[in-house]
Computed example of a mutant assay.
Amino acid sequence: MRLLRRWIDGPWVPPQVGRAPYLWIASLAFFGWKYLYVDASALEYALLALTLAAFVVIYFASFWYAGRRAVPFIAAAFAMGVAWAPVNFGASTFFIFASAMCSRLGRPRIAYCCLAAVLLSATALALGLQLPLSFLIPTLATGAPVGIASIMDAQVRSSRRLLLLKQEEVEHLARIAERERISRDMHDLLGHSLSLITLKAELAGRLLERDPAACRQEIRDIEASARHALAEVRSAVSGYRETGFAQELERARVALSAAGVTLHADAAMASLPAMPATAENVLALALREAVTNILRHAGATRCDVSLGMQDGLIVFRIRDDGKAVAEAGALVQGNGLRGMQERVAQLGGWLGMRCDQGMSLELRLPMERAAQGASR
């Protein structure tokens, strides 16, 4: 029933095979060559018509089956060749088609063994029945290259199909990676900005009665922070955001100052050589995440930041004097630090954290690897 429906609805062969099979069926004309110059009986003509009709069905159906399920079609074509060889030397056409069908078996080794079996059996048949060379030569001279070409073509199609699957998998992984990137950036951007807005809102609430002018200033800062966060979210979603370390350090100083935390930056940072944009962006986001954690959890009064070069490595350290030892486990498992570790790992770097009378974070990036990442 399924075969009949395919004949009615089409196509008769899988689309990836193309239209060539419709032309190959014309090779059956060699099987009818005899009847242009030899008059046969009515029975032979009837058997000829039945054979051709049956073979056309077998031929087109064979394209839809592979592996062991293709064996009956090869056997049927081979049997037609054996049955007609004694009376019609054009039966070599069936052996050629059987040779081509060997490509349906899938595994090249099995396909080549089947091809050899078909050709050797045809040779044995020709020698056993003492058939003329007009039967044997077309069978071997055409069957061998056609069979080999069909097997190689099947391998190419299989490789192309696997390549397409790999490409789809790569595209799927790229989409996942992009979603993770956006997720990390959204966490870093909004986490820091919202923490600052919350802190300033609390401060404005306390200043509302005592110092209205200072309260208005804090509200203006809240508005500016919200606008800045919105702009960064838009640029991050577009995928073009790059944050400068110096700019991020200044933002950190303002945010920590609002929370009563003094930021001390190493004076040697000003004399550092220019860093690749990729490394600078990772360092800026690491600084932002660390400052966000200090604002949320540390209860610190001092924060020390240093950035330097050691043996070709960019070394970044940040430490606070808070008492957030109890929250260390939560920080290690947090999305922010996990995202930070992923970014550092992509550049071949290392990230370490220690909680001992405050949190101490150290990040190392190879300058050469970061430069390669920037050039890509």
Rank of each mutant, 00 (worst) to 15 (best):
M1R: 15
L4P: 07
W7H: 02
D9G: 05
P14F: 06
P14K: 06
V17D: 04
A20Q: 06
F30Y: 14
F31K: 03
Y37E: 08
L43A: 14
L43Y: 09
L43E: 13
L48Q: 10
L50A: 01
L52M: 05
Y59L: 03
S62L: 00
F63H: 03
A70V: 06
V71G: 10
A76P: 05
F78M: 13
A79C: 05
A85G: 05
N88K: 00
F89W: 08
G90I: 02
S92C: 15
F95T: 03
I96R: 04
I96H: 05
S99A: 15
M101Y: 09
L105P: 07
L115N: 02
V118I: 06
L120S: 07
A122Y: 00
A122M: 03
T123I: 00
A124N: 02
A124V: 04
A124P: 04
L127V: 10
L133K: 11
S134A: 06
I137R: 15
I137Y: 13
A141H: 09
G143Q: 02
P145Y: 08
S150Q: 04
M152F: 12
D153G: 11
R157A: 15
S158Q: 15
R160K: 15
K166W: 12
E168N: 11
E168G: 12
L173A: 14
A174P: 09
R175E: 15
S183K: 14
H187F: 11
H187L: 09
L189Q: 11
H192S: 12
L194K: 13
L196F: 10
I197A: 15
L203W: 06
L203R: 11
L207M: 06
D211N: 05
P212I: 06
A214V: 04
A214S: 07
C215A: 12
Q217N: 13
I219V: 14
I219S: 08
D221L: 07
R227A: 13
A236D: 07
G239W: 04
G239R: 00
R241K: 04
A246C: 08
A246Q: 12
Q247N: 13
A252H: 02
A258D: 08
G260L: 00
G260M: 02
G260F: 02
V261T: 09
L263Q: 00
L263C: 01
H264F: 05
A265E: 09
M269V: 13
S271F: 06
S271Q: 13
L272I: 13
T278R: 07
A284I: 07
L287F: 05
E289C: 12
E289P: 09
A290P: 01
N293V: 00
N293C: 03
R296N: 09
C303V: 09
S306E: 14
I318G: 08
K323F: 05
V325H: 11
V325L: 13
A330N: 08
N335F: 00
G336H: 01
L337G: 04
G339K: 03
R343G: 15
W350D: 13
G352A: 04
C355L: 08
G358D: 02
M359N: 10
M359K: 07
E362W: 04
E362F: 01
R364Y: 03
R364C: 03
L365N: 01
